[in-house]
Protein backbone atom coordinates (compact mmCIF):
# COMPACT_ATOMS: atom_id res chain seq x y z
CA UNK A 1 0.00 0.00 0.00
CA UNK A 2 1.25 3.46 -0.77
CA UNK A 3 1.93 5.43 2.40
CA UNK A 4 2.66 8.64 0.54
CA UNK A 5 1.39 9.52 -2.89
CA UNK A 6 2.63 12.59 -4.76
CA UNK A 7 0.52 13.44 -7.78
CA UNK A 8 1.46 15.95 -10.48
CA UNK A 9 2.93 18.27 -7.88
CA UNK A 10 4.32 21.61 -9.15
CA UNK A 11 5.93 24.60 -7.51
CA UNK A 12 6.66 27.90 -9.20
CA UNK A 13 8.78 30.66 -7.67
CA UNK A 14 7.85 33.62 -9.86
CA UNK A 15 9.04 32.55 -13.31
CA UNK A 16 11.11 29.64 -12.04
CA UNK A 17 9.50 26.21 -12.27
CA UNK A 18 11.26 24.56 -9.30
CA UNK A 19 9.20 21.36 -9.38
CA UNK A 20 7.00 20.46 -12.30
CA UNK A 21 4.39 17.69 -12.51
CA UNK A 22 6.28 15.26 -10.31
CA UNK A 23 4.41 12.09 -9.35
CA UNK A 24 5.54 9.07 -7.37
CA UNK A 25 4.33 6.77 -4.65
CA UNK A 26 6.09 5.52 -1.56
CA UNK A 27 5.42 1.98 -0.42
CA UNK A 28 5.01 1.48 3.33
CA UNK A 29 8.22 0.17 4.90
CA UNK A 30 10.45 1.07 1.97
CA UNK A 31 13.44 3.36 1.56
CA UNK A 32 13.27 5.66 -1.40
CA UNK A 33 15.94 8.13 -2.46
CA UNK A 34 15.50 11.30 -4.48
CA UNK A 35 18.63 12.21 -6.43
CA UNK A 36 19.50 14.79 -9.03
CA UNK A 37 22.00 17.57 -9.74
CA UNK A 38 22.04 20.75 -7.63
CA UNK A 39 18.95 22.86 -8.24
CA UNK A 40 16.91 19.89 -9.43
CA UNK A 41 14.18 20.70 -6.88
CA UNK A 42 14.89 18.00 -4.29
CA UNK A 43 14.74 20.22 -1.22
CA UNK A 44 11.72 22.08 -2.64
CA UNK A 45 9.99 18.71 -2.97
CA UNK A 46 10.70 18.04 0.72
CA UNK A 47 9.37 21.46 1.66
CA UNK A 48 6.18 20.74 -0.28
CA UNK A 49 5.65 17.39 1.46
CA UNK A 50 6.31 18.78 4.95
CA UNK A 51 4.01 21.74 4.32
CA UNK A 52 6.68 24.42 4.66
CA UNK A 53 5.81 25.61 1.14
CA UNK A 54 2.37 25.47 -0.48
CA UNK A 55 2.26 23.67 -3.84
CA UNK A 56 1.27 25.66 -6.92
CA UNK A 57 -0.70 22.67 -8.17
CA UNK A 58 -0.98 18.94 -7.66
CA UNK A 59 -1.80 16.83 -4.66
CA UNK A 60 0.02 15.00 -1.89
CA UNK A 61 -1.78 12.31 0.10
CA UNK A 62 -0.45 10.62 3.23
CA UNK A 63 -2.27 7.57 4.65
CA UNK A 64 -5.14 8.61 2.40
CA UNK A 65 -5.39 12.18 3.82
CA UNK A 66 -4.75 15.10 1.49
CA UNK A 67 -1.95 17.24 2.92
CA UNK A 68 -2.74 20.31 0.82
CA UNK A 69 -3.43 23.39 2.92
CA UNK A 70 -2.21 21.85 6.17
CA UNK A 71 0.27 23.82 8.25
CA UNK A 72 3.70 22.26 8.83
CA UNK A 73 2.99 21.47 12.50
CA UNK A 74 -0.20 19.64 11.46
CA UNK A 75 1.73 17.61 8.89
CA UNK A 76 4.24 16.72 11.60
CA UNK A 77 1.45 15.60 13.95
CA UNK A 78 0.07 13.30 11.23
CA UNK A 79 3.37 11.43 11.42
CA UNK A 80 5.83 13.00 9.00
CA UNK A 81 9.13 13.99 10.61
CA UNK A 82 12.13 15.51 8.87
CA UNK A 83 15.75 16.47 9.30
CA UNK A 84 17.56 19.30 7.56
CA UNK A 85 20.48 19.63 5.21
CA UNK A 86 21.92 22.30 7.53
CA UNK A 87 21.23 20.96 10.98
CA UNK A 88 18.68 22.92 13.00
CA UNK A 89 19.36 22.35 16.69
CA UNK A 90 17.55 24.09 19.53
CA UNK A 91 20.32 26.30 20.86
CA UNK A 92 20.65 26.59 24.61
CA UNK A 93 19.15 23.14 25.17
CA UNK A 94 20.91 19.88 25.93
CA UNK A 95 20.92 16.95 23.51
CA UNK A 96 18.33 15.19 25.67
CA UNK A 97 16.08 18.27 25.84
CA UNK A 98 16.23 18.58 22.06
CA UNK A 99 14.91 15.05 21.72
CA UNK A 100 12.30 15.59 24.43
CA UNK A 101 10.80 18.46 22.45
CA UNK A 102 10.23 16.05 19.57
CA UNK A 103 8.56 13.68 22.01
CA UNK A 104 5.97 16.19 23.27
CA UNK A 105 3.68 15.91 20.30
CA UNK A 106 3.29 12.21 21.01
CA UNK A 107 2.46 12.67 24.64
CA UNK A 108 -0.37 15.12 24.83
CA UNK A 109 -3.94 15.53 23.84
CA UNK A 110 -4.24 19.26 23.61
CA UNK A 111 -2.74 22.60 24.46
CA UNK A 112 -4.94 23.49 27.43
CA UNK A 113 -5.30 19.94 28.65
CA UNK A 114 -1.56 19.61 29.13
CA UNK A 115 -1.37 22.91 31.04
CA UNK A 116 -3.84 21.76 33.66
CA UNK A 117 -3.07 18.06 33.78
CA UNK A 118 -0.99 18.32 36.92
CA UNK A 119 -1.56 14.87 38.48
CA UNK A 120 -0.20 12.84 35.58
CA UNK A 121 2.46 15.46 34.99
CA UNK A 122 5.41 13.93 36.83
CA UNK A 123 4.96 10.40 35.51
CA UNK A 124 4.51 11.77 32.00
CA UNK A 125 7.69 13.82 32.36
CA UNK A 126 9.57 10.67 33.42
CA UNK A 127 8.13 8.76 30.47
CA UNK A 128 9.22 11.45 27.99
CA UNK A 129 12.69 11.45 29.51
CA UNK A 130 12.96 7.64 29.39
CA UNK A 131 11.83 7.34 25.76
CA UNK A 132 14.11 10.17 24.66
CA UNK A 133 17.04 8.56 26.43
CA UNK A 134 16.30 5.29 24.60
CA UNK A 135 16.53 7.09 21.28
CA UNK A 136 19.88 8.64 22.22
CA UNK A 137 21.07 5.14 23.13
CA UNK A 138 19.81 3.78 19.83
CA UNK A 139 21.86 6.42 18.01
CA UNK A 140 24.88 5.78 20.21
CA UNK A 141 25.07 9.26 21.75
CA UNK A 142 23.59 8.61 25.20
CA UNK A 143 26.82 9.74 26.88
CA UNK A 144 26.25 13.28 25.50
CA UNK A 145 22.66 13.55 26.80
CA UNK A 146 23.44 16.46 29.12
CA UNK A 147 25.83 18.28 26.80
CA UNK A 148 24.46 21.41 25.19
CA UNK A 149 23.55 20.32 21.66
CA UNK A 150 25.34 23.21 19.96
CA UNK A 151 28.64 22.13 21.54
CA UNK A 152 28.56 18.64 20.05
CA UNK A 153 30.57 17.62 17.00
CA UNK A 154 28.84 17.85 13.65
CA UNK A 155 28.14 14.13 13.29
CA UNK A 156 26.76 13.97 16.82
CA UNK A 157 24.45 16.92 16.15
CA UNK A 158 23.17 15.07 13.11
CA UNK A 159 22.45 12.07 15.35
CA UNK A 160 20.61 14.30 17.86
CA UNK A 161 18.52 15.73 15.05
CA UNK A 162 17.70 12.23 13.85
CA UNK A 163 16.75 11.18 17.40
CA UNK A 164 14.51 14.25 17.66
CA UNK A 165 12.75 13.32 14.41
CA UNK A 166 12.32 9.71 15.59
CA UNK A 167 10.88 10.98 18.89
CA UNK A 168 7.79 12.05 16.97
CA UNK A 169 7.22 8.35 16.25
CA UNK A 170 6.68 9.17 12.60
CA UNK A 171 5.29 6.82 9.99
CA UNK A 172 7.39 8.64 7.40
CA UNK A 173 10.84 10.13 7.90
CA UNK A 174 12.18 12.68 5.45
CA UNK A 175 15.99 12.92 5.52
CA UNK A 176 17.54 15.88 3.72
CA UNK A 177 21.13 14.92 2.87
CA UNK A 178 21.82 12.89 6.02
CA UNK A 179 25.42 12.21 4.98
CA UNK A 180 26.35 15.79 4.05
CA UNK A 181 29.60 16.79 5.74
CA UNK A 182 30.24 13.34 7.19
CA UNK A 183 33.38 11.28 6.56
CA UNK A 184 33.16 7.79 5.03
CA UNK A 185 32.98 6.00 8.38
CA UNK A 186 30.21 8.26 9.62
CA UNK A 187 28.42 7.87 6.29
CA UNK A 188 28.53 4.09 6.57
CA UNK A 189 27.21 4.43 10.13
CA UNK A 190 24.31 6.63 8.94
CA UNK A 191 23.56 3.99 6.28
CA UNK A 192 23.31 1.29 8.97
CA UNK A 193 21.11 3.58 11.07
CA UNK A 194 18.70 4.25 8.22
CA UNK A 195 18.35 0.54 7.59
CA UNK A 196 17.71 0.05 11.31
CA UNK A 197 15.06 2.77 11.23
CA UNK A 198 13.31 0.98 8.40
CA UNK A 199 13.33 -2.21 10.47
CA UNK A 200 11.46 -0.24 13.15
CA UNK A 201 8.64 0.06 10.61
CA UNK A 202 9.34 3.63 9.54
CA UNK A 203 9.20 4.48 5.85
CA UNK A 204 12.11 6.65 4.70
CA UNK A 205 12.36 9.19 1.91
CA UNK A 206 15.80 10.71 1.54
CA UNK A 207 17.62 13.25 -0.57
CA UNK A 208 21.28 12.37 -0.88
CA UNK A 209 24.31 13.13 -3.01
CA UNK A 210 26.46 10.27 -1.76
CA UNK A 211 25.78 7.72 -4.50
CA UNK A 212 27.35 4.75 -2.74
CA UNK A 213 25.05 5.32 0.24
CA UNK A 214 22.00 5.78 -2.01
CA UNK A 215 22.74 2.64 -4.05
CA UNK A 216 23.41 0.63 -0.88
CA UNK A 217 20.29 1.32 1.12
CA UNK A 218 17.49 2.41 -1.24
CA UNK A 219 14.78 0.13 -2.55
CA UNK A 220 13.89 2.62 -5.25
CA UNK A 221 15.30 5.84 -6.62
CA UNK A 222 13.59 8.87 -8.14
CA UNK A 223 15.77 11.06 -10.35
CA UNK A 224 14.93 14.74 -10.73
CA UNK A 225 16.45 17.17 -13.19
CA UNK A 226 15.35 20.79 -13.56
CA UNK A 227 12.24 20.06 -11.51
CA UNK A 228 11.10 17.11 -13.61
CA UNK A 229 11.13 13.45 -12.83
CA UNK A 230 13.26 11.75 -15.46
CA UNK A 231 13.49 8.27 -13.99
CA UNK A 232 12.15 6.08 -11.19
CA UNK A 233 13.40 2.55 -10.67
CA UNK A 234 15.43 0.16 -8.55
CA UNK A 235 19.10 1.19 -8.00
CA UNK A 236 20.58 -1.40 -10.41
CA UNK A 237 18.48 -0.08 -13.29
CA UNK A 238 19.02 3.60 -12.39
CA UNK A 239 22.80 3.02 -12.61
CA UNK A 240 22.38 1.86 -16.21
CA UNK A 241 19.76 4.40 -17.29
CA UNK A 242 21.25 6.38 -20.23
CA UNK A 243 19.24 9.51 -19.36
CA UNK A 244 20.52 9.49 -15.74
CA UNK A 245 24.10 8.92 -16.92
CA UNK A 246 23.69 11.83 -19.34
CA UNK A 247 22.56 14.33 -16.67
CA UNK A 248 25.23 13.22 -14.21
CA UNK A 249 28.15 12.96 -16.60
CA UNK A 250 27.08 15.38 -19.34
CA UNK A 251 26.47 14.84 -23.06
CA UNK A 252 28.97 12.67 -24.87
CA UNK A 253 29.49 15.48 -27.35
CA UNK A 254 30.35 17.87 -24.53
CA UNK A 255 33.25 15.74 -23.36
CA UNK A 256 36.42 16.65 -25.28
CA UNK A 257 37.87 13.59 -27.01
Amino acid sequence: MALLRVEKISKKFGGLQAVSDVSFALREGSIKAVIGPNGAGKTTLFNLISGVLPATSGEITFKGHALNGLRPYQVARLGIARTFQNIKMFAGMTALENVMVGRHVQSRSGFLASMFRLPGFLSEEREIRRKSMELLELLGIAEYADTEAMNLAFGQQRAVELARALALEPALLLLDEPAAGLNIYETAEIGRLITKIREMGITVLLVEHDMSLVMDISDEIVVLSFGQKIAEDIPQKIQRDPEVIRIYLGEEAAVPA
Binding site: V52, Y73, M93, M100, V101, R108
Partner: peptide, 21 residues
Protein backbone atom coordinates in the same frame (compact mmCIF):
# COMPACT_ATOMS: atom_id res chain seq x y z
CA UNK B 1 6.82 20.13 28.16
CA UNK B 2 5.17 23.46 27.39
CA UNK B 3 8.13 25.37 28.82
CA UNK B 4 10.60 23.39 26.71
CA UNK B 5 8.40 23.90 23.66
CA UNK B 6 8.51 27.66 24.25
CA UNK B 7 12.31 27.51 24.47
CA UNK B 8 12.41 25.40 21.32
CA UNK B 9 10.22 27.94 19.56
CA UNK B 10 12.60 30.71 20.66
CA UNK B 11 15.73 28.79 19.62
CA UNK B 12 14.63 27.66 16.17
CA UNK B 13 11.15 28.39 14.93
CA UNK B 14 11.30 26.29 11.76
CA UNK B 15 12.57 23.21 13.57
CA UNK B 16 9.96 23.72 16.30
CA UNK B 17 7.12 23.82 13.76
CA UNK B 18 8.42 20.66 12.11
CA UNK B 19 8.46 18.96 15.51
CA UNK B 20 4.70 19.50 15.48
CA UNK B 21 4.62 22.60 17.69
Amino acid sequence: SIGREMRACAANRTAAILCGI
